[in-house]
């Protein structure tokens, strides 16, 4: 199984074939899991490019994310066992308290995984206390929050203040996204950054991780 084929399966959203292809690359061909990951990432980069150029839309992005998840099920144990396994930047993602939307958050999680981050996905309807505890427990340096409801955007401020009260705010970058948010509103609520969608979010998180 050549790497180009794996990249192509991601680009063409071939969810039913990706697991076999990754398995073949690892088991039969003895490929390095990190080289397979690079091939997958290349595919996701092209999916992101197609999304930005409006060749792909949200439904394609969702399916690409699911295809990546299938690949990760196979590749993750191999990566953990590899001697190349290294410490990755940790990102906590969650939809804020009172909000059960998760399409954007899930996409962000998958895109971050394929970009080499360790993702701790807390799920939906998550309160500030849980986020603070998870930051303490994992040492994550970036927190990504999603809020799709006007009614729940103030939860971002609650998380910001809870991190501050716990003495963690200076160690953590807070990035947010969601329909009612804007760059200005995000700043007012205490966030460090804002992204319009998951594709943009990954770019911003890469910058935050390097800053």
């Amino acid at each position: 199984m050549d790497f180009e084929r794996i990249t192509e399966l991601i680009i063409e959203l071939e969810i039913d074939d990706i697991a076999d292809a990754v398995n073949e690359a690892l088991e039969t061909d003895g490929k390095d899991p990190y080289d397979v990951l690079n091939a997958l990432t290349k595919g996701m980069d092209e999916v992101g490019r197609r999304y930005e150029s409006e060749e792909y839309y949200l439904t394609e992005l969702v399916l690409a994310g699911e295809t990546m998840k299938e690949a990760f099920k196979i590749i993750k144990p191999a990566m953990a066992a590899s001697d190349k396994s290294k410490e990755k930047a940790k990102v906590i993602i969650a939809t804020v308290r009172g909000d059960n939307h998760d399409i954007g958050k899930n996409l962000l999680g998958t895109l971050l995984l394929s970009s080499g981050f360790e993702v701790i996905d807390l799920g939906m309807d998550i309160d500030a206390e849980t986020i603070v505890e998870k930051v303490k427990e994992t040492g994550a340096t970036i927190v990504g929050l999603s809020s799709l409801l006007t009614m729940t955007v103030n939860q971002i401020k609650t998380v910001h203040e809870a991190l501050k009260a716990a003495g963690l705010r200076d160690n953590v970058k807070l990035i947010v996204g969601g329909a009612p948010l804007s760059k200005e509103l995000a700043k007012d609520l205490g966030a460090d950054d804002f992204a319009d969608d998951a594709v943009e979010g990954v770019k911003h998180i890469k910058e935050l991780a390097e800053s």
Binding site: E54, Y57, T59, E60
Partner: peptide, 12 residues
């Protein structure tokens, strides 16, 4: 549609 565009292409 969502914040930045349609859920799928206009063609679809």
């Amino acid at each position: 549609a969502y914040k930045t565009g349609p859920m799928m292409s206009p063609k679809k």
